[in-house]
């Protein structure tokens, strides 16, 4: 067996005739069970009258999709803006953290940890419920975008730091021996390489940002989920709409994830997610 064999297959020996027969029987049984499961779900839809065309036919109308696409555009606007802010803020937090200034470094460390350990919903409630009490009014777009970007910036700071750590120490030492300053080393040697390494991870973080934007209805911002809720009350078709919206979100996030895996594969790096970092 070569090194390219996946662990999934390496676990089993090449099957003999008996095993092959058993696998075949297992395949048949599992296919039947899966088909039964799917049939059960469809039956539940059917006996509860959820397959009635009146719940699905409006998906054939352009106005439905135009309204959903308008919501999707809202989602994209929030996610893109939040992504850019989070990247800038995450980069600043990381640069502060690796700076030789002890005070700045620990301050940035603490801020990073706080943003990473708070649910984005709590931050949204802060901007939605708490800030207006102090007389500050902001449009709903920013009430969703700022908290989402704050939550993401903590994670991105750690992603950037993983990128910086991946740059070989010898290069920094060599630069120091040439008499370059910390700032110059960071700017000319470390950052260009670190940023390239983390590109796939940044793309995969977009998934988290998109997921966080789905609670935009809390601040009544018209994103995909919020517009779907409007359509639900218009057409009185709750089940079909919530399932279609879920599928749209899954498709977007799946595509984003696959794109990040593709980038990582092409660049020969790994995707760093929240799961791979140091917990605290």
């Amino acid at each position: 067996m070569s090194a390219t064999v996946s662990m999934r297959d390496a676990l089993y020996e090449a099957p003999g005739p008996k095993t092959r027969k058993r696998v075949l029987v297992g395949t048949a049984i599992s296919l039947v069970l899966l088909a039964l499961g799917i049939a059960f779900v469809i039956r539940q839809f059917y006996i509860n009258d959820q397959l009635n065309p009146k719940y699905w036919s409006f998906f054939g109308r352009w106005t439905t999709w135009r309204f959903l696409l308008k919501g999707l555009w809202g989602t994209i606007k929030v996610a893109a803006t939040a992504g850019v802010i989070a990247m800038a803020l995450g980069l600043l937090l990381m640069l502060g953290r690796i700076s030789p200034n002890k005070l700045l470094s620990s301050a940035c460390h603490v801020i990073t940890e706080i943003f990473r350990s708070l649910p984005s919903l709590l931050l949204i409630y802060f901007f939605f419920l708490v800030i207006p009490k102090y007389g500050i009014r902001m449009p709903s777009f920013w009430m969703i975008t700022i908290p989402v970007s704050l939550a993401a910036s903590g994670v991105l700071a750690e992603v950037f730091r993983a990128g910086v750590n991946a740059v070989p120490k010898g290069q920094v030492e060599a630069a120091m021996s040439l008499g370059m300053t910390h700032g110059k080393i960071t700017r000319k040697i470390v950052l260009p390489q670190a940023l390239k390494i983390v590109i796939p991870s940044l793309v995969s973080q977009l998934v988290v940002v998109v997921k966080d934007t789905t609670v935009a209805y809390v601040v009544s911002y018209p994103d995909l989920m919020q517009n779907a809720r409007v359509l639900i009350s218009n057409y009185d078709a709750l089940v079909s709409m919530y399932f279609v919206v879920a599928i749209i979100y899954i498709a977007i996030n799946y595509a984003t994830n696959q794109f990040s895996v593709y980038l990582a594969h092409r660049m020969g790096t790994q995707v760093v997610s929240r799961m791979d970092e140091n917990p605290v």
Binding site: M225, Y242, V245, N253, N257
Partner: peptide, 16 residues
């Protein structure tokens, strides 16, 4: 379940 937003799943469970 990795790609579905939790809210989206929650509204399906609660309302659908």
């Amino acid at each position: 379940f990795r790609n579905i937003p939790t809210v989206s799943l929650l509204v399906i469970f609660v309302y659908a």
